[in-house]
């Protein structure tokens, strides 16, 4: 195993432990305590929160901004695909032929989507005003990783740079907003619980 692979494993481990701590902290709180009399079904509502309520037809943030929404979905699929490929690369499997081509095209699309979102953030006054350096760093880092993940399939000599980059990503993730990878699921849970308790969700 090369030093840069080792570096990536150590970084990924630190990241996983940090995410685990964040997750454990949330789980440790248990269900929210509410003294009011429950009116709805919290279990159904939490399920709805992760499913139906996520439908693009239910959210203005999606249906009023379809290009951004589609770019965002593509970007997130690319991120999880990149993380999967990181594990594959560590094991020593390197897709070739048509599989490599499909992966590369997908990652190119998702990576470009990420850069598109970044350009939008830079070019729109109001988004710029809302943003802090973490927003740009996170977006840039993840977009670069997706492109690099595809690139190394055709340019194996770039592997050291790839592993260094992904190590930086893993070390940065728990510090900045990328940790929403954990908190997103908790936020959906809390929202589902809240609306379910009062009988707002799932809609009758």
């Amino acid at each position: 195993m090369n030093w840069y692979q080792l570096l990536a494993i150590v970084s990924a481990s630190i990241c996983l432990i940090s995410c685990f701590i964040h997750g454990a902290k949330i789980i440790n709180y248990g269900k929210p305590k509410d003294y009011s009399k429950k009116r709805g079904d919290t279990e159904k509502s939490v399920r709805y929160s992760y499913t139906g309520a996520m439908s693009p037809m239910k959210k203005e943030s999606a249906y009023l901004h379809l290009p951004t929404y589609i770019a965002g979905i593509s970007y997130h699929i690319g991120t999880f695909l990149s993380l999967f490929l990181f594990v594959i690369y560590l094991i020593g499997i390197y897709p070739t032929g048509i599989v490599a081509l499909v992966i590369s095209v997908l990652l190119l699309i998702s990576g470009l989507s990420g850069f598109g979102i970044l350009i939008k953030r830079i070019s729109k006054d109001q988004l710029r005003s809302l943003s802090n350096p973490d927003d740009y760093i996170s977006n840039l880092l993840v977009s670069l990783i997706q492109i690099m993940t595809a690139l190394v399939l055709y340019l194996p000599q770039a592997f050291p740079y790839y592993f260094i980059l992904i190590s930086i990503f893993f070390l940065y993730l728990p510090v900045g907003k990328l940790k929403h990878v954990v908190y997103f699921f908790a936020a959906r849970y809390h929202l589902g619980f809240f609306y379910g308790w009062r009988g707002v969700w799932p809609p009758k």
């Binding site: 709180y29 988004l127 908790a186």
Partner: peptide, 14 residues
């Protein structure tokens, strides 16, 4: 836990 969650969840998408 609810506060912890929501304070850490916004990604500034606007």
């Amino acid at each position: 836990g609810k506060l912890l969650t929501h304070l850490n969840s916004c990604v500034h998408c606007g």
